[in-house]
């Protein structure tokens, strides 16, 4: 993890919308993870990671908060539900939304130097 990428760098690169947690965009990113199964994310995502998902309900913020992610990217263009945005602001978790599908988002993150945790 010496790529030095922050959530703000990701916002700029993806050209995506920040729905919540904009005051925490300087969060450094450790590794990346992508899954839409919450228990899988709970078990695999690590402290400071960026998480890419298509889920939009507020439980993603609970998972993100408990695991201590740097930020959550909702891929595929679906808008987060209002309680999700509210809870992300309460927990101070950057919540990004992009129309790009997960595959493309992950590819862009990878090109930025963000790797998976198993590659460390």
């Amino acid at each position: 993890m010496n790529h030095g990428v922050t959530m703000r760098d990701i916002v700029v690169k993806l050209g995506c919308e920040v729905m919540a947690g904009s005051e925490h965009l300087d969060n450094p990113v450790a590794f990346g993870y992508s899954s839409d199964l919450l228990s899988d994310v709970m078990a695999k995502v690590g402290l400071g990671d960026v998480w890419v998902t298509v889920q939009t309900h507020e439980n993603i913020i609970a998972v993100g908060s408990i695991t201590g992610v740097s930020g959550i990217i909702i891929a595929g263009g679906a808008a987060p539900l209002p309680p999700t945005v509210r809870r992300a602001n309460e927990e101070g978790i950057p919540l990004l939304v992009t129309v790009k599908p997960s595959f493309e988002v992950i590819g862009i993150l990878y090109h930025m130097g963000i790797k998976g945790r198993s590659e460390k």
């Binding site: 839409d36 199964l37 919450l38 228990s39 899988d40 709970m42 078990a43 998902t53 889920q55 309900h57 439980n59 993603i60």
Partner: peptide, 16 residues
């Protein structure tokens, strides 16, 4: 569809 019920809950609890 909400991303729950993947059959990982109890195994996660035992694992951790």
């Amino acid at each position: 569809e909400m991303g729950f019920g993947a059959g990982l809950g109890l195994p996660n609890m035992r694992r951790y």
